[in-house]
């Protein structure tokens, strides 16, 4: 066939369904990150705590095993809201480290190398791009937070009986909502920082700094002005307040009572913070930047 007869023909193969196109991004991202042995090792370590907690739940219901290990039931941690709150707190701590490892280069690489038009020239919207980038973290953090948390709840329900599950269904809800608030915060924050700070190390530092500096500022405002509202600048305290309300645990951070933040204020501040992240993200994620 002559060359001039090679006319343009559109792609005629099967198309990825519109709803699942954003999943292409995490698929490629995981291939990269799991190539690192250190990262894979760290990810595997994230499942040690769920395993230990599953063993604890099992021991509660196995008198033979307790007799073999010579453990008294009173010495074992009770399976209640505090147990599951500790689990969520510990796992979200690991999720933070995971975010520091994975989050910073997510968008910064595309922006630094002017690769954004390559995504957006395809049938792929800005929203899908952002959701795709966020889902790299959403999926991975879900795998170490609420998924094992709910499995632990189901395991305990199975061993304890349906009555326990019905009485404590709020715990399952608290694990789910508590984990997702952390997941959304970490994912949105890291993607926003990644979009604004092109230097990977600076982006990681900004993630750490945001929590450490906001902690110091929050406590100083509380101390100096003798108020509880300094907690509104403190991301850690905002999240702790939300967790406490979900797990019905009063003041797990051990703050003086006058420093404890009201739960609605914590939710509103978190929503404002997430909205700010989203606003900053939409300003930065554009195919072309017109410089006047």
């Amino acid at each position: 066939m002559a060359v001039h007869e090679h006319a343009y023909k559109p792609y005629a193969g099967p198309l990825t369904p519109v709803w699942s196109r954003f999943l292409i991004i995490p698929r490629h991202a995981y291939r990269d990150v799991f190539a690192s042995k250190v990262f894979t090792g760290f990810f595997a370590l994230c499942f040690v705590c769920p395993l230990v907690m599953a063993i604890l739940i099992y021991l509660h219901h196995n008198l033979t095993a307790m007799a073999i290990f010579q453990i008294n039931l009173q010495n074992l941690a009770p399976i209640n809201g505090v147990f599951f709150q500790f689990f969520v707190g510990f796992q979200t701590g690991l999720a933070f480290l995971l975010t520091v490892l994975m989050g910073p280069p997510l968008i910064s690489r595309d922006l630094a190398n002017n690769a954004l038009p390559l995504y957006l020239c395809r049938p792929f919207s800005r929203a899908e791009y952002v959701i795709g980038k966020m889902s790299v973290l959403l999926i991975l953090i879900s795998a170490i937070t609420w998924v094992p948390g709910e499995l632990l709840f189901l395991f305990q329900s199975y061993l304890e009986g349906a009555g326990w599950a019905a009485r404590n269904l709020w715990m399952a809800g608290a694990i789910f909502v508590g984990s997702w608030t952390w997941i959304l915060l970490l994912a949105l924050l890291s993607v926003t920082i990644s979009a604004w700070v092109k230097w990977r190390l600076a982006a990681s530092a900004a993630l750490f700094g945001l929590f450490i500096i906001s902690n110091a500022i929050g406590f100083t405002v509380n101390g100096v002005l003798q108020t509880r509202w300094g907690g509104l600048f403190n991301l850690t305290i905002i999240m702790k307040t939300i967790e406490d309300s979900l797990f019905r645990g009063p003041n797990s951070a051990g703050l003086p009572s006058w420093m404890v933040l009201p739960t609605p204020a914590a939710w509103i501040m978190l929503a404002l913070f997430l909205a700010l992240c989203l606003f900053l993200l939409t300003r930065k994620v554009r195919a072309y930047e017109v410089v006047r």
């Binding site: 530092a205 700094g209 450490i212 500096i213 110091a216 100083t220 101390g223």
Partner: peptide, 21 residues
């Protein structure tokens, strides 16, 4: 109060992270 603010916020946080940056 100022001594605590100075050591807790200015010295240990702001100067530390500021100098790091």
């Amino acid at each position: 109060i100022f001594a605590n603010l100075y050591e807790g916020l200015i010295l240990r946080t702001i100067i530390f992270f500021g100098c790091a940056w």
